[in-house]
Amino acid sequence: MKHFRAGLCFLMMIWAMAEVEADKKPKAFSSGTHFPEYHDYGSSAPEPDRDDPLHPMLGIPVENRQQMEKKCKNITRIRYGYSAKWTDAPFQVSIRRLDLDRWESFGMGHYCSGSIIANNAILTSGSCLKGQGRAEIGVVVGTLNRRKAILEATQLLFPANIIVHPRYLSENDPRFDIGLVLTSRRMEIGPKVAKIKIDLNAPSARTKCKTYGWGITSEFGADYTDCLQRAALSIVDRRDCRSLTTEYITNSTLCARSSLDSDPCTADLGSPVVCNGKLSGIVTRKDGCEGTAHADTHMSLFQHKQWIKKLLTEYHVRSDDDADSGARLVYTSRIYVAMGVFAFILGTCIF
Rank of each mutant, 00 (worst) to 15 (best):
Y111T: 05
D99P: 04
P264A: 09
R242Y: 04
T246I: 07
N201L: 03
E19L: 10
K85F: 14
G81E: 02
T207N: 06
D320L: 03
L157Y: 10
A343P: 00
C265T: 06
R318K: 15
M299Q: 08
A202S: 08
Y82W: 10
P46I: 11
G59K: 09
S234F: 13
E171H: 00
L228I: 02
G42A: 11
S333L: 10
A160W: 01
I14S: 04
Y38G: 06
G114M: 06
Y224K: 13
G190D: 03
T207C: 11
L8Y: 08
S271M: 00
C349Y: 08
F91E: 12
P26T: 00
S262H: 07
P56K: 01
K309N: 14
C255F: 12
S243V: 13
Y168H: 12
S300F: 00
T217I: 11
G133Y: 02
P48T: 05
I178G: 02
A232Y: 11
A160S: 10
V236W: 09
R146N: 01
E188R: 14
I308W: 00
I189T: 07
K27R: 11
C9I: 05
Y168N: 10
Y248V: 09
V341S: 08
R134C: 03
A16N: 00
E37P: 07
K210F: 14
C9D: 05
R185L: 13
F176S: 11
A231S: 03
Q229H: 01
D237A: 08
C128G: 06
P174R: 08
K2R: 15
E47T: 11
N119F: 15
W86V: 08
M187Y: 15
M57L: 07
D322G: 12
I216G: 09
K130S: 13
I308F: 00
K71I: 13
A18K: 06
D263L: 07
I350P: 03
C128D: 05
A295L: 03
S115R: 01
V330Y: 01
D40L: 09
V164F: 09
G190N: 09
T297A: 10
I137M: 08
P36Y: 02
A160M: 04
L312M: 13
A153N: 02
G270R: 13
Y315M: 03
V193F: 09
N74D: 10
H110P: 00
D322H: 12
E152I: 05
G133R: 05
K197E: 13
R206A: 12
K305L: 03
D263T: 09
L156R: 13
S325E: 09
G215A: 09
L169S: 14
F302H: 00
K210E: 15
P166G: 06
I60G: 01
D322P: 08
V20A: 04
P166C: 05
P26M: 03
E37C: 07
S259D: 11
R102A: 12
C275H: 02
K305W: 04
A28R: 06
Q66L: 10
T348G: 14
H316C: 00
F29Q: 12
V274F: 02
R65P: 13
Y248R: 13
H110I: 00
I249R: 04
L254C: 07
I282S: 01
S30C: 12
S234E: 15
S271C: 11
R230E: 04
